[in-house]
Nucleic acid binder design. Structure first.
Ligand SMILES: [Zn+2]
Ligand SMILES: [Zn+2]
Ligand SMILES: [Zn+2]
Ligand SMILES: [Zn+2]
Lengths: 169, 169
DNA sequence: TTATGATATGTTATATCATAACATCGTCAA
DNA sequence: TTGACGATGTTATGATATAACATATCATAA
């Protein structure tokens, strides 16, 4: 029932989602990945990652800062932004450009191009990895002579749980 | 040679691009559209639109503000942001989320979902309207039970003119 | 024409997001 | 031990955006 790693069914959160396991899993995977790469997941960075993973909503840097200060009173904006930069570089979180906010990556093991479905009601930011879509964009751009370096794909709308006629699946 | 309206060939700028006609055309079309819709394209809004259209790069609100002050010394941030809001509502400009900046719409006559190809070197922001891509996103999201309200699709990279092996077409 | 309401703009202050610059600390290897 | 490097501390500032309220302008109906 936990579905923490096997996200095959739906990328959205459900009532049965066990977020405790979810976040624990994310932190474990991050530790393993950093160890494997020789990157230092310091306690500060681990705490920031944990705070970004508090939910599946994108969270602003200053919200992270405020929460971080409970365990780390001297924290200042650069404290958080540097940790966020590290986590982004290592693919552990993503930045949501349309929200100026950050969200945990659901598949940090390998670099990928993802698409986000962001619910305007509950804030849930679901990460897709649809290679047909990213591939179509790559081909279309390539045909126009444009060399793609990065894709930002963010859809706003209502997730299944927040739709008016939400017949749960 | 102007290619101001018929963008069929390439959405990118070329050496032969006549931007004088381009911007004049954009302002004319904006006036017509607003008249037809009963919207008031005031002198202030028209000037802001003109400033956004100074080039095909996305331009920040404060850059618009600085330029606007030459003709409108008392302008303040709300002056610009309100005009930008009006222009966005009427589809005359788009906001580029990944740049916190604004760019003129190349086809303001009807609402559309567009994709932007943004050159990291020259800044050119080319607007595509690829219904296959927007449709694929709609279908994929719909299959997951997500009701899409808005699409933000912004690709960063190098445009044909800025690519190292740029063989002009 | 003049009153009236709606829309647009002016004005001041502040909220929100992000980085520059330089100091200090910790770790590890020569 | 010391030097180099990376991480963090610290202060200040830059960049983007909005709240709140005052005033002006415009359209329309009395
Ligand atoms: Zn979870
Ligand atoms: Zn991811
Ligand atoms: Zn032009
Ligand atoms: Zn457009």
């Amino acid at each position: 029932m936990v579905r923490s790693r096997a996200e095959a069914a739906s990328p959205f959160q459900t009532a049965s989602h066990d977020h405790g396991s979810c976040i624990e899993d994310a932190l474990d995977r991050a530790a393993q990945l950093c160890a494997a790469r020789g990157a230092r997941l310091t306690e500060l960075r681990r705490q920031v990652l944990q705070l970004v993973w508090r939910g599946h909503e994108a969270v602003g840097a200053y919200a992270v800062l405020e929460a971080l200060r409970r365990s780390h009173p001297g924290a200042a904006p650069p404290t958080v932004y540097r940790a966020l930069d590290f986590l982004i570089e290592h693919g552990l979180i993503h930045r949501i450009e349309s929200l100026n906010a950050y969200v945990g990556c659901s598949r940090p093991e390998r670099r990928h191009v993802s698409q986000f479905l962001i619910c305007g009601k509950c804030g849930d930011a679901a990460e897709l990895e649809d290679s047909a879509i990213s591939g179509a964009l790559l081909r279309r751009a390539g045909a126009l002579g444009f060399a793609v370096e990065q894709q930002t794909i963010e859809l706003r709308g209502l997730c299944p749980r927040c739709r008016p006629n939400a017949r749960a699946k």
